[in-house]
Amino acid sequence: MPSSDIFIGEVVGTAVLVLLGGGVCAAVTFKRSKAFEAGWVAIAFGWGFAVLTGAYIAIGVSGAHLNPAVTIGLAIEGGTEWSDVPLYILSEMIGAMLGATLVWLSYYGQFLDHLTARQSDAAEPAGSATAPKRDEPGPVLGIFSTAPEIRNSWQNLVTEIIATTVLVIAILTQGLNQDGDGLGALGALITALVVVSIGLSLGGPTGYAINPARDLGPRLVHAALPLPNKGSSDWSYAWVPVAGPLIGGALAGGLYNIAFA
């Protein structure tokens, strides 16, 4: 596959994935959004449709990995050349950062309104319930990246490993009943439904990153954007949604070779 196809497909596809996925998180988070408090089901389906859209855009160009964990799983399974892996992952990171920036631009007024309100809250006494703390992540971070409900790094890591293994093994086994030819574009729909299922079933503990680029790229954008009173980017947790999905992707690739190849 030409390097230009990998780069263009993965950048554009991942950017659309993160734009629509981060967009649903923003829509549910901001008070001055028509989807405010739409809930977890809206987020799960929003991310599923985001995967569907990004994958359909990229599948004919780069194969639509859109996720370093998928890239690693495919490389271990043998469907992707190891020499292409760095380009895939770099392209996915660039796309994720671009998508997160587009979310910020799309919701610029809501970001400004929300953070201005937090700035007013900062004038309250230090012990008040609404006063923001610089060293703690604020609600805006959830638009960009994930955070656990119970902060236990090893449990959070295991959750991400399990969820990503399910995702990648579901991708790798597509089309096995079709004489190994794969399902093509139909596979994008199946993958999207798997993502919805993971969100509803396994997303509760950690917010189901299941994609290192989807979490780390937007987290870097959160750290870089000039957003007053945004809180920290929670770097102490940031390794979990990177390491967990990469381990899960590798496990899925190995499992596929043992049980299905």
Results as ranks from 00 to 15, higher is better:
Met1Asp: 05
Ser4Ala: 09
Asp5Lys: 15
Phe7Gln: 03
Ile8Tyr: 10
Ile8Thr: 14
Gly13Pro: 13
Ala15Ser: 13
Ala15Asn: 12
Ala15Thr: 06
Val16Gln: 12
Leu20Gly: 07
Gly22Gln: 08
Phe30Val: 07
Ala35Asp: 02
Phe36Glu: 02
Glu37Asp: 13
Gly39Met: 12
Ala42Val: 13
Ala42Tyr: 14
Ile43Trp: 08
Gly46Leu: 05
Leu52Phe: 15
Ile57Gln: 13
Ile59Val: 15
Gly60His: 14
Val61Asn: 12
His65Trp: 09
His65Tyr: 04
Leu66Tyr: 09
Pro68Val: 06
Ala69Pro: 04
Thr71Met: 07
Gly73Trp: 01
Ile76Trp: 01
Gly79Tyr: 07
Thr80Lys: 12
Val85Met: 09
Leu87Ile: 08
Tyr88Ile: 01
Tyr88Val: 05
Leu90Gln: 07
Leu90Phe: 12
Ser91Phe: 01
Leu98Lys: 09
Leu102Pro: 02
Ser106Asn: 08
Tyr107Ser: 10
Tyr107Cys: 12
Gln110Phe: 00
Leu112Lys: 04
Thr116Lys: 15
Ala117Gly: 08
Ser120Gly: 10
Asp121Leu: 09
Pro125Thr: 12
Thr130Pro: 01
Leu141Met: 03
Leu141Phe: 14
Ser145Thr: 15
Ala147Lys: 01
Ile150Gly: 00
Arg151Lys: 14
Asn152Ser: 06
Ser153Gly: 00
Asn156Asp: 15
Thr165Asn: 07
Val166Leu: 14
Leu167Thr: 04
Ile171Pro: 09
Gly175Asn: 03
Gly175Lys: 08
Asp179Gln: 04
Asp181Gln: 15
Asp181Glu: 11
Gly182Ala: 11
Ala185Thr: 09
Leu186Trp: 06
Leu186Asn: 04
Gly187Lys: 08
Val194Ile: 14
Val196Ala: 06
Thr206Gly: 09
Ile210Met: 07
Ala213Lys: 06
Arg214Asp: 03
Leu216Trp: 11
Pro218Thr: 00
Leu220Ser: 07
Ala223Lys: 14
Leu225Asn: 07
Leu227Ala: 10
Asn229Asp: 12
Lys230Glu: 01
Ser232Thr: 12
Ser233Leu: 10
Trp235Ala: 10
Trp235Gln: 11
Gly244Cys: 09
Gly244Ile: 03
Gly244Gln: 04
Ile247Met: 10
Ala250Glu: 09
Leu251Trp: 05
Gly254Gln: 02
Tyr256Gly: 01
Asn257His: 02
Phe260Tyr: 13
